[in-house]
């Protein structure tokens, strides 16, 4: 497998506090990898180590074949979690400046900036100072600044935070477009829906430790499936169905009908539970099989550890 990013036994200690513990994972070239974890899980510390901004206390990081991000700085694009640009600069100048730092001549950088801004619907604002742009517009400009030099690896730290749903959708399109062109994208987030829509591979971190690495489907498979039942049912009757590990009631059973969310045990077949329910004459008026989301997997895999 052609690997764009590889971490082997990486740790980061700040005094006695260990922010990242023995972390290892790989990101295949040209893929979109979600780097997931709750706040304080060690995502930003890991990203800083990948970029070469701070050295790992232990372990090795290989980025685009080079040792550490410093060696291949020009081939990486980075959008930090806390965003900001020079307030008096225009979007064109800002994008051209950051592309220039990555080796793109200023004239070419300006051309690319104009093209990118037009494509993102910011053509009318390209000569306004950054301070005159809305937060969403400024975030788009910063993303353009991170990718204008056409990097091989793009690292986005919480790219969706602060964006409205329309802009979030636009950013998802940009990320897909990057991957279509062969760029490897690693983005951190604690909002699972984005990762679910964008990624094939995810790495889950909790309290500095990797708790999962693999495909989204594999992550989901680690979480239990649910059977939703609605009708004039008793909690005990639902709990007594085969394969049901736990039951959570929604609504008031005393009102006549209620909805139950039955958690299925690993490997249990929902058909068996349904068949038994009907065989026992339970008053089931509606049923639905619920596949676990990445969010469910996240809760299970992190064990609720934030």
């Amino acid at each position: 497998m052609d690997v764009a990013l590889k971490l082997e036994g990486v740790s980061k200690r700040y005094g006695r506090f260990e922010a990242v513990k023995d972390l290892s994972f790989e990101v295949p070239r040209g893929s979109i990898c979600g780097f997931l974890g709750p706040n304080g899980a060690g995502k930003t510390s890991t990203i800083r180590m990948i970029l070469g901004l701070s050295p790992p206390s232990a372990g090795q990081i290989t980025v685009l074949g080079g040792e550490g991000g410093n060696a291949v700085r020009d081939r990486i694009g980075f959008l930090p979690e806390e965003r900001g640009l020079y307030r008096k600069m225009t979007p064109v100048d800002a994008i051209a400046f950051f592309a220039g730092l990555k080796g793109v001549p200023l004239g070419e950088g300006r051309k690319r900036a104009k093209k990118l801004l037009e494509a993102q619907g910011l053509g009318a604002s390209m000569k306004k100072p950054m301070k005159a742009l809305s937060k969403g517009m400024a975030q788009k400009v910063q993303l353009m600044a991170a990718i204008a030099h056409e990097p091989d690896l793009v690292i986005l730290d919480e790219p969706f935070s602060g964006l409205d749903p329309v802009n979030q959708q636009g950013l998802e399109d940009v990320i897909r477009d990057l991957a279509d062109r062969g760029t490897t994208v690693l983005f951190s987030t604690h909002v699972m829906q984005h990762a679910e829509r964008l990624c094939r591979q995810v790495v889950l971190l909790a309290r500095g430790e990797k708790v999962f690495e693999g495909t989204v489907e594999a992550a989901r498979a680690r979480a239990p499936r649910f059977l939703e039942l609605e009708g004039a049912l008793a909690t005990d009757a639902v709990a007594g169905l085969p394969g049901v590990a736990a039951v959570e009631a929604a609504g008031d059973p005393a009102a006549g009908t209620a909805t139950y969310r039955a958690t299925l045990a690993p490997g249990a077949a929902p058909q068996e539970a349904l068949k038994t329910a009907f065989a026992r004459g339970l008053d089931v008026r509606r049923f639905e099989m619920k596949e676990p989301t990445l969010h469910d997997a996240f809760i299970v895999l992190t064990g609720g550890r934030a």
């Binding site: 970029l51 070469g52 901004l53 991000g69 410093n70 700085r73 990486i76 980075f78 930090p80 806390e82 965003r83 900001g84 640009l85 020079y86 307030r87 950051f98 730092l101 990555k102 910063q142 600044a145 991170a146």
Partner: peptide, 16 residues
Amino acid sequence: EEKSNRVLEVLMSSAS
């Protein structure tokens, strides 16, 4: 200003 504007981190990822 660069630190409070969060530009410094991007700069550091682009240059030594």
